[in-house]
């Protein structure tokens, strides 16, 4: 019997059986992991970002900051209203624009524009930004996120499609100048 437990036909088959199951599980794990990681891998191939229109340039008066909305370039059938995104469009003059994400650079709450005091204020933790998006006060460590934009044939388009977050600044322009009174 002791000889059998050391190296028997059954023992070998059991081991091969376990190995077989391991190989099958590993083979099956490949598509499962690919499926689970698809939201990341697609993004890495820059499949989410695209140029989207915010409308005619003359819808945005010079010297003012207006809320604009656009449809997210990557939409799924169950998105409902979450397929739309809002942004703040500041037309400095002519074709000079700044397009800010509504998401506070602190933790992503929607900032509101107060034209009278020339400030963006965040309702969550009290972040405030100047009209050019630079940080004015509060917990944010930086200015508002900006979308790259271009003006063509009287139409303004922005490069958008991802939720702007503090850790992901590679695709979004950093704020340009320090606040100065």
């Amino acid at each position: 019997m002791s000889n059998e437990t050391k190296f028997s036909r059954r023992g070998l088959f059991t081991k091969v059986g376990i190995l077989f199951n391991g190989v099958v599980a590993a083979a099956l794990a490949v598509p499962i992991v690919q499926y689970l990681a698809s939201s990341v891998t697609r993004g890495r191939a820059n499949g989410y970002l695209s140029w989207v229109s915010l409308g005619r340039v003359n819808e945005f008066p010079e010297g003012e900051t207006r809320l604009a909305t656009f449809r997210n370039p990557y939409v799924t059938p169950t998105d409902g209203k979450t397929a739309d995104t809002a942004c703040w469009v500041r037309r400095i003059e002519g074709d000079q624009f700044q397009v800010f994400a509504v998401n506070c650079a602190h933790l992503g709450c929607p900032v509101r524009w107060f034209p009278q005091s020339g400030l963006f204020m965040c309702p969550c933790h009290g972040g405030a930004y100047y009209r050019d998006g630079s940080r004015a006060s509060g917990p944010p460590e930086r200015g508002l996120f900006e979308y790259p934009f271009k003006v063509e044939n009287g139409e303004i388009t922005i490069h958008a499609g991802e939720l702007p977050t503090p850790g992901q600044t590679a695709t979004l322009a950093f704020y340009r100048k320090p606040p100065c009174a």
């Binding site: 990681a37 939201s39 997210n72 939409v75 799924t76 998105d79 409902g80 979450t82």
Partner: peptide, 10 residues
């Protein structure tokens, strides 16, 4: 991975 895509959606 958390959002299942680039934005908060379906």
């Amino acid at each position: 991975l958390l959002l299942g895509g680039p934005i908060i959606a379906g």
